[in-house]
Simulated scan of single mutants.
Amino acid sequence: MSTIEGLGGIVLAYELLVPRLGRSHSAERTSVSLMPEIARFYGIVIRMFLIDREHPPRHIHIKYGDHVAVMELQNLNIIEGQIPKRCRQLVREWAEAHQQELIEMWDSQNFHRIEPLD
């Protein structure tokens, strides 16, 4: 994965996700995209890709160490990838607290930081 960090959590990235995430994210892996970092807590990074608006369902991307996953926002289920159970529980707890805000962010594409889990 190649990334260039910069500008308040916005990351200019290419090959954004490792191939294990499947075909639906091939556009992210092969093109340059902006990926705002929405939150970071306990070593977990939550991002939402600008181009995701074009391919439902609404979702967030989770990175924890070498683990990556995608969580859909309606039912808060992991739909791609794998993360450790405790990480999944923490992200779900955080996402439940901010679910409506995350859905509105997806729909509006107006990205901003969200408070991390305490």
Rank of each mutant, 00 (worst) to 15 (best):
N77S: 05
L7S: 11
K63H: 07
P36F: 03
E93T: 12
Q74C: 10
E115F: 03
S31A: 01
G22C: 01
R92D: 06
I103G: 07
H61Q: 00
S2R: 08
P36K: 03
L17Y: 04
D52E: 10
D66M: 07
A97F: 04
R88V: 14
S31I: 03
S31L: 10
K85C: 12
E15D: 07
A13K: 03
I103W: 11
H59W: 02
I44E: 00
L16V: 15
E115C: 09
Q89P: 01
H61N: 02
G6E: 07
L12K: 05
H112P: 12
I103R: 13
E101C: 06
I62E: 00
E101G: 09
E93H: 14
L117E: 01
Q99D: 08
W94Q: 02
L50D: 12
Q99V: 06
D66A: 10
Y14R: 15
H61L: 01
M35Q: 09
T3F: 05
E54M: 10
V32T: 04
L7I: 08
M71T: 03
I103L: 13
L73P: 05
R86W: 12
R92L: 14
I78V: 07
V68C: 04
L117P: 08
R92F: 06
M48P: 00
D52Y: 03
E72H: 06
R29T: 07
P57G: 02
E96I: 06
K63E: 06
M48F: 00
M1C: 07
C87L: 09
E54R: 14
E37Y: 04
Y14M: 10
S2T: 04
A95L: 09
L90S: 03
F111A: 06
N75H: 13
E104Q: 13
E93N: 10
I4F: 11
M35I: 09
Q82I: 13
V32K: 05
K63I: 11
N75S: 08
Q74I: 14
Q82W: 12
V68A: 15
E96R: 08
L50M: 13
L50Y: 15
I10A: 14
W106D: 06
K85Q: 14
L73H: 04
P116A: 02
E80W: 07
